[in-house]
Amino acid sequence: MNQSVPSHSRLPLIRNWIVGILLILIFIWSLSAMKFDGIQEYGAQVVSSIWEGFTHPDWDYVYLPDGEDLLRGLLETLIISILGTFISAFLCIPFAFWASANMSRIQAVSISGKFVLTVIRVFPEIIMAILFIVAVGPGAFAGVLALGIHSIGMLAKLYSETIEAVDNGPREALISSGASKLQVLRFAVLPQVIPQFISYALYRFEINIRSATVLGLVGAGGIGVPLLFALSSRNWSRVGIILLGIVILVTIIDLISGWLRRRII
């Protein structure tokens, strides 16, 4: 206490050290859960065969005249994410208005809406896919439904933030010109939010195309299904071509979607 000024300035430093040491301890504790033994059993032979597979992708698999090939798998993945995004982009609109603070006078309404969206958002799409597989059977449709419902959580949140940021001026102008409530919504609110809505939907589409590649791992259609087969049969050259296909598809989608988003806003 006699040297209050220096000790005060040293306090954050001590706190940082404590936080740092704590972090390192937590990190070591976390690492202790990983079992590193057993890795050595896989000799250089396995690694080299994997390398061999990745450097020599199975080009024949890209297109097979009959049956399952890479292009058809990727197409199905693309379709799942298009439909999933489409469904959520519309289903989330009522949720977005529910969660927007400026759309209702009672605060509890928007708070409850925000909580529901949080729960939807943290509920993994993989689990949703499994539930929908039970309902409609394995396949792409279950994947579409899983993505469609799961994406509501994030999209509705972003939409509601857009609605909360709406400029009230045009609303006032429309009311003063004798517009009805729906006309006010149509001509003052929608033109302000629609471009942002589309932009967010495209952004979600970029996320969904990635998600759609893994849905197949649980049987919900798309490129994940053949990937799982290739992985379990250790067909590394096929794994290589499938991963290459995914990287190319996702990159192309990112480029197109990013270009569209820049044009819209």
Partner: peptide, 17 residues
Amino acid sequence: RTIPDLLFAAVFVAVFG
């Protein structure tokens, strides 16, 4: 960033068990 986490996991499980 084009590869989702679960896909990485599937590949690493196949490689490292």
